[in-house]
Simulated assay, not measured.
Amino acid sequence: MRCYWDEEDTWFYFEVDAEGWVIRQVELQGPELTPIAAASLAEWQEARDAGRLDEYDSKFGITAELPVSEWEGHDPEQLTSEEFEEIWGPARQQMASRPS
């Protein structure tokens, strides 16, 4: 799904599991749609367990911490898996290529 937050001029793209937890998240900001986050919950958990959480957060960001069923004030637009992947791939590549 995707949502737009006009206060920050940011598009949020989410891949969620069956229980509504965000498992991957992309944030694109401004008119250029600059990636500011492309985070994976599984990778975040691995980084936490390995003691590299700060490094992961600074490079890729984090995913939402509540399941979507608990969100207030959002009107998500449903996306297909393919549509999410079209956003995830380029955003992730751009985030990964940034200097640490």
Results as ranks from 00 to 15, higher is better:
Ser81Met: 08
Tyr13Glu: 06
Arg92Met: 05
Glu46Gln: 08
Pro76Asn: 09
Ser97Met: 10
Glu72Lys: 04
Phe60Asn: 01
Glu15Lys: 10
Thr80Gly: 00
Glu77Met: 07
Glu15Phe: 04
Cys3Trp: 14
Gly51Asn: 01
Ala18Met: 04
Phe14Asn: 14
Glu46Leu: 06
Asp57Arg: 12
Ala64Phe: 11
Ala50Trp: 03
Trp11Pro: 00
Glu19Gln: 09
Glu46His: 13
Pro67Asn: 00
Val68Arg: 13
Ser97His: 10
Asp57Thr: 15
Val16Met: 05
Asp17Cys: 00
Ala42Pro: 11
Leu33Asn: 06
Leu66Tyr: 11
Ile36Arg: 02
Ala47Arg: 01
Ser97Tyr: 10
Glu15Gly: 11
Trp44Glu: 10
Glu77Ser: 11
Ala18Trp: 05
Gln29Ile: 13
Ser40Gln: 02
Gln78Trp: 13
Tyr4Pro: 02
Glu32Thr: 11
Arg48Lys: 13
Arg48Glu: 11
Ala37Asp: 05
Gly61Met: 06
Pro99Leu: 10
Pro99Trp: 08
Glu7His: 15
Glu72Gln: 12
Thr34Asp: 07
Tyr56Pro: 04
Arg52Pro: 06
Leu66Ala: 11
Ser58Leu: 05
Asp57Gly: 15
Trp5Val: 15
Ser40Val: 02
Ser69Gly: 11
Gly20Lys: 00
Glu15His: 09
Trp21Arg: 07
Ser81Gly: 12
Glu55Leu: 09
Arg52Val: 08
Leu79Ala: 00
Gln45Asp: 06
Val26Ala: 01
Val68Ala: 04
Ser81Val: 12
Glu32Gly: 08
Glu32Cys: 13
Trp21Asp: 08
Glu70Pro: 08
Pro31Ser: 14
Glu32Asn: 10
Ala38Ser: 03
Glu55Lys: 13
Thr34Trp: 05
Asp49Lys: 07
Ile23Lys: 12
Glu86Thr: 13
Gly51Ser: 01
Gln94His: 08
Tyr4Ile: 02
Thr10Ser: 06
Ala50Lys: 04
Glu82Asn: 04
Gln29Arg: 07
Ala64Arg: 08
Phe60Trp: 03
Glu15Ile: 05
Ser100Ile: 12
Glu72Ser: 13
Glu86Tyr: 07
Gln25Lys: 09
Trp11Val: 02
Glu70Ile: 14
Pro35Phe: 01
Ala38Phe: 04
Ala37Val: 06
Met1Leu: 10
Gly89Phe: 15
Trp71Arg: 02
Glu43Gln: 10
Gln93Ile: 08
Val26Asp: 00
Arg52Lys: 14
Arg24His: 05
Met1Ile: 09
Ile36Glu: 05
Ser97Thr: 09
Pro67Gly: 01
Gln78Lys: 14
Ser81Ile: 08
Lys59Phe: 10
Pro67Trp: 00
Gln29Tyr: 15
Ser40Gly: 03
Phe84Tyr: 02
Asp6Met: 14
Arg98Glu: 05
Val22Glu: 06
Met95Leu: 02
Glu27Val: 05
Asp17Ala: 02
Pro67Ile: 00
Glu27Asp: 09
